[in-house]
Design a protein around this nucleic acid. Structure first.
Lengths: 239, 239
DNA sequence: ATTTATAATGAAGATTGCTCATTATCGACA
DNA sequence: TGTCGATAATGAGCAATCTTCATTATAAAT
C-alpha cells in the first residue's frame, strides 16, 4: 500500500517532467506548423528546437501526423475556452453571436496554417466520427449551438433552418470569408462581413427603420388604427 | 518561310504526342490523388501507371506539387463547364441557383480528396492572387456571380449583402455542409440543406402559399378589418 | 543516310520519417 | 550511501520517396 503510493508519487514527478517535455514539443511544433505548414516542417527540427533527439519525439507521439493532431487539439482547446468565456461575458443573443463570429474569424485568419492540416486527418482516420479531433470540434461548435438554440427559442435567430444547416452556414461562410479577406486585404472588410452574416441569421428588430418587415408592420398598424377609429366613430353614434 | 512552316507542323505532331502523354499523366494522377490523397500518392506509381519512367514526369511537371495543381486545374475546368451548361439550360434565377448548389455539393462530396489539396498550394504560392488556380477559381465562381447579379437586380435574391460576402456564404456553407453530410450519411439531407441555403438567399415570393410572416400578417389584418366592418354595420343598424 | 534537336530513361543523390540497439537517468531499497 | 531495475533518451542507420542528370533513344531535317 505505502509502497504503491510512494511508487505512484515518484513516477508522478517523472511523469510531470515527461508531460512538460511533451508540452514543449507541442509548443515548438505549433510554431513551426504555423510558420511553414505541415509538409515543410521536419521532425528533426522540432526535436532540435525542443532540445531532444529525433527518436525522443517518437516516444511521445506515434508519428508526425500525431504531432500535428496534438497541435490542432491544443488550438481547439484554446479556441473553445475563449469562445465560452466571451459568450459568458455577454447577454444578448445578437452580441454573443457577433462575438463568436469575430472570434472565429480572427482565429481562422491568424492560425490558418494550423486549420489547414485538418482535412488531412479527417478522412485518414478510419472513422473521423469518434476521433479525438471530432470530439474537440464538437465541443467547440457546441458553444455556438447553445447560443443558437437560445436565440431560436427567444425569436432572435431565424428558426426556418435546421440547427446543423445553420451551423454549417455560419462556420462555412466564415471559412471562405476569411480566405477572401486574406487574399484581398482590405480594411473594414471584417466588420462588413460580420454584418452581412448577422443579417442572414439574426432576425431584425421590427423597430429598425428601412426593413421590409418593419415597413409592412407599420402599414398594418396604420390600417388597424384606422379600423379602430372607425369603430370608435360607430360606437360614438351608438351612444 | 516554308522551312519554318514544315518545322512547325513537324514539331506540332511531336507536340501532339507530347500533350497526349501529359494528359495521360494528369489522368492517372487524378485517379490516384482521388483514391489515396496527396501524401500517399507516389510519383513512381504515377509514372508506372502512365507507362513512363520516373524522370519523364519531371519533363512535364516541375515537381509533385505541379502535378497536383494540374489535377486540380482539370477538375476546375470540368466543374466550370458543367456549371455554365446547367445554368444555360434553366431560366428562372431560383432554378439556376438551386442547380449550382446541387452541382457544387455533389462534386465537392465526390471529389473531396481533389479539393483537399487546394489549401496546400494557395498560400505556398508567393501570391496566390494571379496564379493559375486563382484564375480558375475565379472563372468558376463567375458563373455564380452572374446568376447572383441577375437575381439581385430582378429582385429574386436579397440585395442587402455584398456580392463577395454572398458568394462566400454560398460556397462556404456548402463546403461545411458537404463535410457534415459525408460524416453522418443521412438520406434526404442534400435536399434539406439546399432548401435551407435557398431560404437564406432567395427572396420568397409573397404570393406563394405558406410563406409565413407576411402572409400571416396580411391574413390577420384582413380579418381585423372585416371585423371592423361588421362592427360598423352593426353600429349603422343601431342608429 | 547522316545529323541534330528533342524526348525518355533510370540509376544515383538528397531529404526525411521512423526504428531500435545502446546508453543514460532517476527513484527505490537495503 | 551505493546498487539495481525500470523508465527515458539517444542517434546512427534503414527505408521510402522526391528529384536530378548523364546517358541513351527517337524522330525530324537535310
Amino acid at each position: 500500500m505505502r509502497k504503491a503510493q510512494t511508487a505512484v508519487s515518484a513516477s508522478k514527478t517523472r511523469r510531470e517532467r515527461v508531460e512538460l517535455k511533451e508540452e514543449a514539443i507541442v509548443d515548438v511544433a505549433y510554431e513551426m506548423f504555423l510558420e511553414r505548414g505541415y509538409a515543410k516542417t521536419t521532425i528533426a527540427e522540432i526535436a532540435r528546437r525542443s532540445g531532444v533527439a529525433d527518436g525522443t519525439v517518437y516516444l511521445y507521439f506515434q508519428n508526425k501526423e500525431a504531432v500535428a493532431r496534438a497541435v490542432v487539439a491544443s488550438f481547439y482547446i484554446r479556441l473553445t475556452r475563449q469562445a465560452q468565456e466571451g459568450v459568458d461575458e455577454l447577454t444578448s443573443i445578437a452580441d454573443r453571436l457577433r462575438f463568436l463570429a469575430r472570434h472565429h474569424l480572427e482565429n481562422v485568419m491568424n492560425e490558418r496554417r494550423i486549420l489547414e492540416m485538418l482535412p488531412f486527418f479527417e478522412f485518414a482516420v478510419e472513422s473521423y466520427d469518434g476521433s479525438e479531433l471530432f470530439q474537440m470540434n464538437k465541443a467547440y461548435v457546441t458553444v455556438f449551438d447553445r447560443v443558437a438554440k437560445d436565440g431560436i427559442s427567444a425569436g432572435d435567430i431565424r428558426k426556418d433552418l435546421s440547427l446543423w444547416a445553420l451551423r454549417d452556414v455560419f462556420f462555412g461562410a466564415m471559412e471562405y470569408g476569411a480566405r477572401t479577406m486574406l487574399i484581398k486585404n482590405r480594411p473594414g472588410d471584417l466588420d462588413h462581413f460580420i454584418d452581412n452574416l448577422m443579417r442572414l441569421v439574426v432576425i431584425k428588430n421590427a423597430a429598425a427603420a428601412g426593413s421590409d418587415a418593419a415597413a409592412q408592420l407599420a402599414s398594418i398598424t396604420q390600417r388597424l388604427e384606422a379600423a379602430a377609429s372607425r369603430i370608435e366613430k360607430a360606437a360614438g353614434k351608438i351612444r
